[in-house]
Design a protein around this nucleic acid. Structure first.
Length: 257
DNA sequence: ATGGCTACGATCCGTAGA
């Protein structure tokens, strides 16, 4: 199974690129974030024609997540159960016996802001949710835009970013609380080149300068981590005209999963 | 020089992203 996550920053604008990328890459499961559209306007027909069933949790203008899969997703659950939240940031489904949680974690805007407090509350709720999911599903993958660069090596200029939102100590603590559940960062299961990122600012020639952050991740339960054979970031879509500011992240599992 | 871009929904600017 090949699983991917991609923050597309508007499904409407990025649909042609997504369809091209699905044809070129043929992932079995794709987690999408920042659809920025309501479910009725989600391009279900086009994606079904491309061979993907869709589970969608949409919202006008902001947020919005979906799971696409060759095998239709079952036991679909939207949002974090028991956590009151207007924002559509989570959808979960089971595909081929793998429980997939697609997450668009809050940005946090600025350390200490109202949105930052919300981000930390949200991560606490996610941790509790994933702890319960792990009890039920030994084969669990959590894929999405986490809006946290876990370590300094995930940051192009750690000195400039020190203490800022996306890298601050409380955010990294929230990330490590997910790892403490037994989840593994798929990308770090393997030797990787240096300076690999998943997001580059549209401004300041961010991509050309490789001034990026690694904030999009695939977390795996122990069982899936054992069976994981590769995890990569595909920079190709970021090079296109009118790209998303995020690149897709992939994780692949062997038959032993 | 702390901006610079992109998307959205309402205009011809404000909000948000990260």
């Amino acid at each position: 199974m090949r699983l991917a996550t991609w923050n597309v920053n508007s499904i409407k604008v990025r649909l042609p690129q997504l369809l091209d990328w699905l044809r070129a890459t043929s992932p079995d499961v794709v987690c999408l974030q920042e659809l920025k559209t309501e479910e009725p306007k989600f391009p279900r027909t086009e994606l079904e024609a491309a061979g993907y069933a869709c589970a969608v949790n949409g919202q006008k203008t902001y947020n919005g997540v979906a799971i696409l899969s060759h095998t239709p997703p079952v036991d679909v659950v939207a949002d974090i159960p028991g956590f009151a939240d207007e924002q559509k940031r989570v959808i979960a489904a089971t595909v081929d016996g793998v429980r997939v949680v697609c997450a668009y974690c809050p940005n946090g805007q600025a350390v200490g802001s109202e949105k930052y407090q919300y981000k930390l509350r949200w991560f606490a709720a996610l941790r509790d949710y994933l702890a319960a999911e792990l009890q039920m599903h030994p084969r669990l993958a959590v894929a999405g835009d986490f809006n946290v660069a876990p370590e300094d090596r995930d940051v192009h200029d750690p000195k400039a970013w020190e203490g800022q939102v996306l890298v601050s100590a409380p955010e990294r603590d929230a990330w490590r609380a997910l790892l403490a559940l037994g989840l593994k960062d798929s990308f770090r299961l393997f030797e990787q080149p240096e300076k690999i990122y998943s997001w580059w600012d549209y401004r300041m020639l961010g991509f050309r300068r490789n001034a990026g952050l690694r904030i999009d991740h695939v977390l795996l339960s122990a069982r899936l981590a054992q069976a994981c054979t590769a995890s990569t970031i595909d920079k190709a879509p970021r090079k296109l005209e009118r790209p998303s500011d995020h690149a897709p992240v992939l994780a692949e599992f062997g038959a032993g999963a």
